[in-house]
Nucleic acid binder design. Structure first.
Length: 473
RNA sequence: GUGGAUGUAGCUCAGUCGGUUAGAGCAUCGGAUUGUGGUUCCGAGGGUCGCGGGUUCGAAUCCCGUCAUCCACCCCA
C-alpha cells in the first residue's frame, strides 16, 4: 500500500463511513435525550494516575501513555468512568440527584487489534448517580435496548443478558460455596461460555468445590432461568431478598417495554472489577460478534476513587461491534439523508441565460436554504452534453437537476426514479432568481414530495430482499 | 505477549509447471455531429504483486525474515 497508512487499529472515516458513524451517533443521542439524559464531555488526555489509581499499574501496558513536555505522565483516555467520577465528585453536592449524564468519547487502548476490537473507538457512556433503587437499573437497561430499536434491530437480533452479583453471591452461598471460594468461582463463571465444560469443571474443582457442587454451579451458570431460580431460592433465607429485588427489576423492565429482550444469565460477571449489583451485556442473538454493550451497578466506585459515597450505575456501548452488526443486517440507510437538493445543469436555454445568471440562481437557492451543487469548470458547463452533466449529478445522489429551458423557464427534474417521464417542476426564472418566497416554497414542497415518493418506492420494492443500490448495505 | 491463516489496481478477484510488457469486472476520469439523459459504445488514468533479503539465466509464483490484516488464546475499562 501507500507509505502513509493510518496506524494499526486506527480508522480513516471516508464520507460513507462517517455517514454510518453519524447514523449511530444520531441514534445514541436521540434515545439518550428521550430518556432525559444530558450530554457532557471531558479531555481526551488525562493524568496517567487517574487510571492506575483505579486499575493498578498493569493497566499501563494497555494504555497510550507518555511524558509530556512539562514532565507530566499522561495517557489517552481508555475509558470514561474515571473522568466522569471526577466531574461528578467535584460538584457532587451541587448536582441535582439523580444525575443522568451521557457522553460519546473517543477512547484508546494499546492492544492487538481484532475484529470488533480496535485501538480506538467511540463509546456511548450512559450513567446514573445517586439512586440505589432497581428502577434506576431498569431505566438504564431500557436506554440500551431502546437504542437497538432505534437502529432497526429487534429482540430476535439482540439479546440482553442480565445478572446480579448480589443474587449470584446469595445463590452460591445457598448451595454451599464458601465465601473464600467466591472469587475463583466468579473467574470460572465469567468465561464459562468461552471454554469447554470440562475445563470449567476442572477449575472449579481446583478452587476446592466438591464434585456434586461443581455440577450444581455449572448448571446454574449455564442454563438457569429466573423462574427456576425463583422456585429454588425464592424462600432461601439469604437469597430471598435478592430474588425479590430481581423480580421487581424484571417487572420494571416489562413495564418499560423491553422485557422480551431480557434473559437472566448468571454467567454474566463483567470482569472481576467494580460491579456491585446488576450487570448486563447486549449480544447479537446469533452469537457471531463480541458484546455490543456492557454495564451495571457500581455503588462503591465513586467513593473508592476519592469521591463522594453515592450509588451509581452505567453502561458503555462501542461503535465498532454495533456498526458490524448493523452492516451484517443491512440496517445502515443509503446515503439519502445527506443528499444534495439540486445540481445546476445547462439545458437548452443555457446559452441565453448566461453563466453569471446561472450562478446567481444557485446563490438565490442557497440563500433560501437549499443545498446546491454545480460543476466547477465554467467552460465545460456550456461545452459538455447536458445528459453527461445530469448523469454525474444522478450518480452523486443529488435529488434533482435544475436547468434552463429554451423558452426561458427554469425546469427542475427529479433524479430519483426512472429517467423516462421523470417528474418535473417548472419555475419562473425571474422569480427564482429573485428568491421569491412562494417560488422557493413550491420548490421545497416539490422536492419533499419527490423524496417521499422515492422512499415509498424503495420500501415497496425492497421488501423481499436487497434490490437496487450499493453493495455496502 | 502466544499460535495459525492470508497479503496482486480504490473494491471483488484471475494470473497454468518459475518464463518475456501482470489482467478482468466494478468504480473513477474524458468522449460519442450545442445537448431531455439510468442503457450502449469508444478511450484514459490507476500496480515497486505488503516490505526486505535469498535461490535462479529469469520470481507475483519457490525459501527465509519482517510488517499488516483476520482467526483462536491472553486481557478486558
Amino acid at each position: 500500500m501507500s507509505s502513509t497508512t493510518s496506524l494499526p487499529g486506527f480508522r480513516d472515516f471516508y464520507p460513507d463511513e462517517l455517514a454510518r458513524r453519524a447514523h449511530i451517533f444520531r441514534a445514541w443521542r436521540a434515545v439518550a435525550r428521550k430518556y432525559a439524559f444530558v450530554e457532557y464531555d471531558g479531555p481526551p488526555l488525562e493524568p496517567l494516575e487517574l487510571y492506575t489509581k483505579k486499575s493498578g499499574d498493569e493497566i499501563v501496558g494497555q494504555l497510550y501513555n507518555f511524558t509530556d513536555k512539562g514532565g507530566r505522565e499522561v495517557a489517552l483516555r481508555p475509558e470514561m468512568t474515571p473522568t466522569f467520577a471526577r466531574m461528578v465528585g467535584a460538584r457532587a453536592n451541587a448536582l441535582r440527584k439523580p444525575v443522568r449524564w451521557f457522553s460519546i468519547p473517543q477512547l484508546f487502548r494499546y492492544e492487538r487489534a481484532q475484529r470488533g476490537r480496535l485501538r480506538e473507538h467511540f463509546q456511548l457512556n450512559v450513567d446514573i448517580v445517586g439512586e440505589a433503587s432497581e428502577l434506576a437499573d431498569a431505566e438504564l437497561l431500557a436506554v440500551a435496548i431502546d437504542i437497538m430499536r432505534e437502529l432497526g434491530l429487534t429482540s430476535a437480533d439482540v439479546r440482553a443478558r442480565v445478572s446480579d452479583r448480589r443474587l449470584l453471591n446469595a445463590i452460591l452461598q445457598a448451595v454451599g460455596v464458601a465465601e473464600a471460594q467466591v472469587p475463583a468461582v466468579y473467574a470460572v463463571v465469567d468465561k464459562i461460555a468461552r471454554q469447554p465444560r470440562e475445563v470449567s469443571a476442572e477449575k472449579l474443582a481446583q478452587a476446592g468445590l466438591a464434585g456434586p457442587l461443581v455440577e450444581r454451579v455449572l448448571a446454574l451458570a449455564t442454563g438457569a432461568t429466573f423462574e427456576q431460580v425463583r422456585a429454588e431460592f425464592g424462600t432461601d433465607a439469604g437469597a430471598a431478598e435478592h430474588v425479590a429485588r430481581f423480580a421487581r427489576y424484571r417487572a420494571h423492565l416489562d413495564a418499560l417495554g423491553v422485557g422480551d429482550w431480557v434473559d437472566l444469565d448468571l454467567s454474566i460477571v463483567r470482569g472481576l472489577a467494580y460491579y456491585t449489583g446488576t450487570v448486563f451485556e447486549l449480544f447479537d442473538a446469533r452469537g457471531e460478534l463480541r458484546a455490543i454493550c456492557g454495564g451495571g451497578r457500581y455503588d462503591t466506585l465513586l467513593k473508592s476513587l476519592g469521591g463522594t459515597d453515592l450509588p451509581a450505575l452505567g453502561f458503555g456501548m462501542g461503535d465498532v461491534v454495533l456498526g458490524e452488526l448493523l452492516k451484517d443486517r443491512g440496517l445502515f440507510p443509503d446515503a439519502g439523508e445527506e443528499a444534495v437538493d439540486l445540481h445546476l445543469v445547462a439545458g437548452n436555454g443555457a446559452s441565453q441565460v448566461g453563466f453569471p445568471d446561472a450562478l446567481r440562481l444557485v446563490t438565490a437557492l442557497r440563500r433560501a436554504g437549499f443545498s446546491v451543487a454545480h460543476g466547477l469548470n465554467a467552460e465545460r458547463y456550456l461545452s459538455q452534453a447536458t445528459r453527461n452533466q445530469v448523469d454525474s449529478a444522478r450518480k452523486a445522489g443529488v435529488t434533482a437537476a435544475i436547468a434552463f429551458r429554451e423558452d426561458g423557464a427554469t425546469e427542475v427534474t427529479s433524479l430519483l426514479g426512472a429517467m423516462k417521464g421523470a417528474p418535473t417542476l417548472v419555475l419562473d426564472t425571474a422569480r427564482a432568481l429573485a428568491g421569491e418566497d412562494a417560488t422557493m416554497q413550491d420548490l421545497r414542497d416539490w422536492l419533499h414530495r419527490q423524496r417521499a415518493a422515492a422512499r415509498a418506492a424503495t420500501a415497496a420494492g425492497a421488501a423481499p430482499g436487497p434490490t437496487t443500490g450499493s453493495p455496502n448495505g
